[in-house]
Each structure stands twice: as C-alpha cells, then as structure tokens.
Simulated scan of single mutants.
Amino acid sequence: MKILLATTNEGKVRELRQLLKDLDIEVLSLKDMDKKLEVEEDKETFLENAIKKATSYAKFYKLPVIAEDSGLEVDALNGLPGIYSARFFDIEFGKEVLKEIPENLSKDEKNNLKLLRLLENQTNRKARYKTTLVFYNFDYGILTEGVCEGQIAYRSEGNQGFGYDPIFIPEGYNKTMAQLTPEEKNKISHRGKAVSKLVEILKKVL
C-alpha cells in the first residue's frame, strides 16, 4: 500500500517516515510526485488546514494521504505564531523588530530571530508545539492530535531538527529540541505523539 505525505518539508518527511516505519506501507512525499499541486494553507485552524490538504491531495493523486498542520503557540504573544508558524517572519505582526536581520538567513532562522526579539524583555516564556494529523482514505478519515509543552529559550542552541526546535525547550528538559537526538525528539514531540496514535489505529484498519 502507498500513502502520500502532504508535505515538501524534508524535516517533516524524515520524521514521519521514521515514525511510520512499523507499518507495511510505502511512504511517498509530494517531492516524489511528477505532477505538481500546491494547496494553500488559508484556513483559520490547524484542523481545517490539515483536512483541506488531505482531501485535496488525495483527490488529485488518487492516493490515501496523511496531512498535518502544526505550529508553535506562545502564551506571551496570545498564541502566535500559531497557524502562521511557517511564515511568521513575513506577517505584519511584530514588523518593528525586524531591523538589521541578515538576508542570508534561512526562513527558519528568520522566524526564530523574530520570535526571540519579540520576547526579549518577556519573563513569561511558556509555549507549546501543537499538531493536528489527518489520514484520508476516501472511504474514511482519521484525526489525531499531539501537544508538547515547554518554553522559549533566550538564545538559539542545537543543530538537530528544524523550525523552532533550536529555541524550544521541552518540559522536563534543560536543553532545546534541537539538542535532542531524533529518537529522543520523536518520543516527546507533538508530531511523535500524534503519529503514534495514528499508527495504532492504522494497524487495526489497514
């Protein structure tokens, strides 16, 4: 059986393939597909974005799809970046802190730097990673969710992972997500929790 992961993010693909390895399936990503379709994530919640991606890609490629939408919620910013996590640097909120940011930084580095600057004088660093995962197989759909509580560090550390991992310290740890091994991260991460739930269900229905 083939299942399509509705993402081109190499970090997500790597994590999801590792988490799905116990299932007897061939895991494809959007980068493996010849015909290209881009589905805009323009909804207002992680769930709505995940459902839109799962159903749109499934109908286009005629394959079962696993889609997810995830992000970082920071209490001091009233839940932002949230659904804007991947493009936080580009949104209007917080533009005042964007002076003198080098153009050669990656998108992740720019997002992280913007967030650190917005929290510069903030003692409340509480935050959480959230993900909503949708499996769509034409006949039925499965929804799972995962949350990883933690706090925002004062500086970027570590080179594992991706996204906000270098500035996110998981609850119970004294190092960032980017300082954990992939195996350590998968045990506690929002995505790891959501995929583990999905795998248990898929073992029964596939």
Rank of each mutant, 00 (worst) to 15 (best):
Y154C: 10
E73L: 11
K193Q: 08
A76L: 06
G71I: 03
I169K: 01
D75V: 13
D139E: 15
N159F: 11
E92K: 13
D108F: 02
I101P: 01
Y57Q: 00
G150M: 06
K114W: 03
V13E: 07
K95G: 12
F89T: 00
E120P: 07
Q151V: 15
K130T: 10
L5T: 02
K35N: 14
K21N: 13
E103Y: 12
L77K: 04
L180K: 01
E26T: 12
L143P: 10
I101H: 05
K107I: 15
L105F: 09
P64S: 10
C148T: 11
G192D: 02
D108S: 04
L37E: 15
K175S: 10
T144C: 06
T144A: 05
D90G: 11
V195T: 08
Q151C: 12
E68V: 05
V199G: 02
L80I: 12
R87I: 12
Y173V: 09
I152Y: 00
F89A: 09
A127V: 00
D24P: 08
I152P: 03
Y57V: 02
G161D: 02
I3V: 15
S70K: 05
G163E: 00
L80W: 01
L119A: 01
R117V: 04
V205A: 09
L116T: 05
R117D: 06
R17D: 04
T144Y: 04
E103S: 13
